[in-house]
Design a binder for these strands. Sequence first.
DNA 1: CTGAAAGCGCTTACAG
DNA 2: CTGAAAGCGCTTACAG
Lengths: 331, 331
Amino acid sequence: MRNPATLKKISDHLSVSISTVSRALKDHQDVSPETKRRVKELAEMLDYEPNSFAINLRKKHSDLFAVIVPEISSYFYHSFIEAVEEEARLKGFSIMILQSRNNPELESNNLRLCRYNHVAGVFIAVNNSSENHPAFKKMEDWDIPMVFFDKVPAEGNFNKVCMADEQAGALSAEKIVQKGHQHFIAVMGSPSMSITIGRENGIRTYLSKYAPGVTFDCLYVDHGEKVETLLDRYSNSELQGKLLFSMSDEILCGIIPFLNQRGLKLPADISLLTISNGFLPRLFSPQVCYIETNGNKLGKMAFNRMSEILDGKKVVCERLLDCEYFSGGSM
Amino acid sequence: MRNPATLKKISDHLSVSISTVSRALKDHQDVSPETKRRVKELAEMLDYEPNSFAINLRKKHSDLFAVIVPEISSYFYHSFIEAVEEEARLKGFSIMILQSRNNPELESNNLRLCRYNHVAGVFIAVNNSSENHPAFKKMEDWDIPMVFFDKVPAEGNFNKVCMADEQAGALSAEKIVQKGHQHFIAVMGSPSMSITIGRENGIRTYLSKYAPGVTFDCLYVDHGEKVETLLDRYSNSELQGKLLFSMSDEILCGIIPFLNQRGLKLPADISLLTISNGFLPRLFSPQVCYIETNGNKLGKMAFNRMSEILDGKKVVCERLLDCEYFSGGSM
DNA sequence: CTGAAAGCGCTTACAG
DNA sequence: CTGAAAGCGCTTACAG
């Protein structure tokens, strides 16, 4: 390992003190122009790079944010991460990615890593399964700001940035009712997830208020069960003319092959509405109608919230990202 | 900011020296069991966490790998990142993500960040545009191992881990020839990318060797041009019975809507073969035939190579990931 | 304008 | 079995 240049090395070469070198490199007013010039020139030549460990050891925190997600390659998180990296870079921060793979132990361990590395803040989408409240509390004790996004704890006073799940559910119901359906089939994710609960609540609330006669079957994709298996309970004639509502891209990816395999055509045989970031729905023919969930927008929103906290606006709050309807040809 | 516990704080409470506390916590044999017990108990109580800055300052490098990509949310990189994170975690490392957005300046800056943070190693997919050789060289000077993946520099002696692009091209040509096509249309990415060159070479080499009569139009999607626009030069009757070859998922996503819009059916009106990670091709009906590029596998391969380098096997080499054919119904 | 010194939190060779 | 001391590379209050 080549020895990287240090302030000491530069100071030795130039026969000035380390303090002077340090000051010269940061353009401190106390240093004479001539000294500055000599120091900077040599620093350049020696390929000097400050040492983050030494700097952070004094500052007691790093220029690193952590993003903790169940997994990176989901339909949504990578675009969230992309947006956060972008914003972070513009503000001089970098990001560390940690996956918790729906394993509470890993999640705790990831939070421990955040403490170990004294990150400036944590963006976290929590696991499906249990809620790691003690681990979350510990971050508070360490004064490491946390912004929960997408999958957030149902209980507890935390900073949250989410899709407006209830609104998305209500908007879905509204569109379904408008199309004249008296009954539909909703395919939802795990019933323990906050997003499932929110979206389903949105549907129920809307229906009970504006269309009490409309009913729906509610199927939950849980415990690794496949969408296809769940839907197999219906015969083609039972599905004829019906509407399928899909809670997410993940579920959409189960529904599409199912429809293909059954030979059901959109929208002649069956209608389809999904919640999605919009990428997949636009690839199909006809394009699938969707309510937009935008990972990039949510990432920017989360970053803004984090910036506010770092700037001192610490009062805990919950922000919602409004959703919009895209009209395809699937219903 | 709550003051996190330090060795000093523990040593004060227990009236032992800092050295003893440090040794006790790492189960050093020199320390008496009784002292160990007391130290560990208090450390637990005080929620002690070692300080990575102090540790790394001594070790002179961190437990952090950097992954540098043009962008995270491409069809490929997020699964690569996912695999690297997974492997890294198992070995006690974390990963930092940096995007270079096809901007050479950003790329250099990201490499500077890697030096600043004394990362243990860098995984990098380079920009389309220019090649940043001076910046790459500098990393060598700093003895920071680099593993290039997917988009790699054409020149220079570097560790590379890639799809077998030539092989993928050749395999594609083989399948096309087998289906009896005398002429086809290849839709490729930017001609300056190593993967474009490799894949096209593979096709040409195969054809000149085994099927010299077979010809193809070669279209390049470059400078933000759209696939649809490129293909618009062909009338439906010109396309009838033809085969389209798509170099990547990105291009596939342009071709599919084009076919839908033109009302061309697979495989009756037109055939389609793509190179892909396999996710999208399997969603369509019929499923699109593809040659597999697997981001996860490539990530694991890259990590293995990195591990070898860290273990001392420093001799530069290039590894290729074999590709496989998946038979759908699109040709 | 410049420098010596203390300190961030840790590890480890050395002495006892 | 335990401790005092040096040192990793930097910044900054203090003294001159």
